[in-house]
Simulated assay, not measured.
Amino acid sequence: MAQLDIENLSKRYGDFQAVREVSLQVADGEFLVLLGPSGCGKTTTLRMVAGFIEPTAGHVKLGGRDVTLLPPWRRNAGMVFQSYALFPHLTVAQNVAFGLEMRKVARAEIAKRVDDALALVRLAGHGGRLPRQLSGGQQQRVALARALAIHPDVLLLDEPLSNLDAKLRQEVRVEIRELQQKLGLTAVMVTHDQEEALTMADRLVVMSEGAVRQVGTQRDLYERPANRFVADFVGRSTFFEGMVEAPGRFRTDGGLTLACVGGTPGRGALALRPERVGIASTAGSGLDNNLRGTVEFVSYLGALIDIHVRLSPSDRLIVHVANRDGAFVPEVGQPVHVGWPAAAAQVFNE
C-alpha cells in the first residue's frame, strides 16, 4: 500500500471546467470517500488518479512517485467499476487473472493470486463459473477480487454498489470496509450516497462544480459544515431564509425572530438539523427558541418519524422523533410547540 497525493488536479473540456485544482492527501491505509451530486467532478477526479483520463493540469503521486503521465497498467492501481466491467465470455477465474496476465505475471503465481483473491471475497470454488451464473453481489465481489489480485498500491472504487438492491448494498459495503481494514488498503471511493459515505469512510471529501467544498470526518461535516452546500448535502437540514439583524438574532422572511449563535449582520440562512428540535403539545421552557406551529405532514420512517410543522406562511420546520414507547407523535392539523437551543442552529451569510 502507499500514500496517494493529488496536487492541484484540474480537467477542462473546452470551455467547461470539470475539475478545479483538487488537492488531497490520502494516507497509507486510509479510506477516503469523494461525495457529491452527479456532475460534481468526483468520477473525473478518480479516473484521473487511475490514469483513464489525462489531467489538464496537476499531478498524481503514489508512494511519492509521480504517475501523472503513466498509463493505467503501470500505476498499480486497482479499479472497481460501477458496471463491474466483467468479460461475459470469460470465467470468474479468467476475469480475476486478466490484470495479472497484462502484467505478464508467471502462470503459477497467477493461479495462486486468483485463488487467494477469490478466497478473500468469499468466492472460493466459483472460479469456473461465468458472470451470468452469478448474482449481482457475487459479480461485484469478482470485480473486487480482480482489483485485489494485482496487489494494488491504491484501490479505487467508482460507485461500486449502485447496481445492487438496498439490502445487498448494506451487506457488501460492510464487506468492502472490513476487507479494506483487514488488508490495510489505501482506498478512494466515489459515491453520491450519503449513507454509504458515512458508513465506509475514514474521511469524506464533499465536492460540487468540480471543486472541493470541505474535507473532514463524518462528525466534522455533519456538525460543523463549512458552508451551506455541505450543510444541505450531508444529512438533512431545515433552512430559514432571512437576515442576521445582529449577532445572535436572525429574522426570517416570514417574520420569525430566532435566537442563534454568532452570524454577521446581513442576508443569509439559518440551518437546523431535524433531530435537534423538540416537539410537544404545550410550550416548553428553558430553550432559546419556542415557537407555535401546525403539523402539515407526518411520515413513518421506521426508526424515525418525520414531522413537518408550519410556523408561518413561508417558514416550515422538519422534526425527527425517535420511534419509541411514549414518544409524542402529533396528527396532521394538530397545533404543536417546537423548540431548540440557539447553539443547535448554524448561520450562513450570503
Rank of each mutant, 00 (worst) to 15 (best):
M243F: 10
D232C: 04
L144Q: 00
N349E: 14
V142T: 02
V188M: 14
E195V: 15
T191D: 11
P274I: 09
A327W: 06
I279W: 09
D306S: 06
N290H: 14
V332M: 11
S83V: 00
E331Q: 14
E7W: 05
D306T: 00
D66Y: 10
E223R: 14
N323R: 15
V105F: 02
P71C: 12
A343P: 00
A108V: 06
V329N: 01
A93P: 07
V309N: 02
A269L: 06
E178F: 00
V190S: 04
R236D: 01
K11P: 09
E7T: 12
A187W: 00
L86P: 10
A77Q: 02
I307S: 01
V154C: 11
D232L: 06
Q140V: 08
L221N: 11
V329F: 00
P313W: 03
L287H: 11
V19S: 05
S162G: 12
G210F: 04
N8T: 14
H192E: 09
A246R: 15
V309S: 08
V174R: 14
M243S: 12
D220E: 11
L204K: 07
V105K: 05
L272T: 04
A119P: 10
D253A: 13
G266C: 11
T252S: 15
H59V: 10
R213Q: 15
G235I: 08
D115M: 07
L62I: 15
I110R: 13
L90Y: 12
L258S: 01
A50T: 11
Q181N: 13
N323T: 12
A145K: 05
L120K: 15
R324Q: 14
A143Y: 05
G254M: 08
L118H: 08
I318D: 00
M243Q: 12
C40K: 11
A2K: 15
G216R: 13
D116R: 15
G242V: 05
L62W: 07
V205R: 04
G127C: 02
V49N: 03
A343T: 11
G125I: 12
G41V: 01
Q346A: 13
L123T: 06
P72H: 08
P330A: 03
V26I: 15
T43W: 03
R65G: 00
L70H: 02
A187N: 06
V244R: 06
K167R: 14
G137N: 03
L118D: 03
M79G: 00
L161C: 06
K61E: 02
V19M: 02
Q194N: 08
V19Q: 07
T45Q: 07
R324K: 14
K42L: 05
L32F: 09
H126A: 14
G41S: 07
G136T: 02
M1Y: 04
R103I: 12
A201Q: 06
K104G: 03
D288V: 10
V174H: 10
G128N: 12
D253W: 01
V49R: 03
L35K: 05
R65K: 15
L90W: 14
P152N: 10
V234N: 01
A344N: 01
M48T: 03
V295M: 05
Y300S: 11
N163E: 08
D115N: 13
R316D: 00
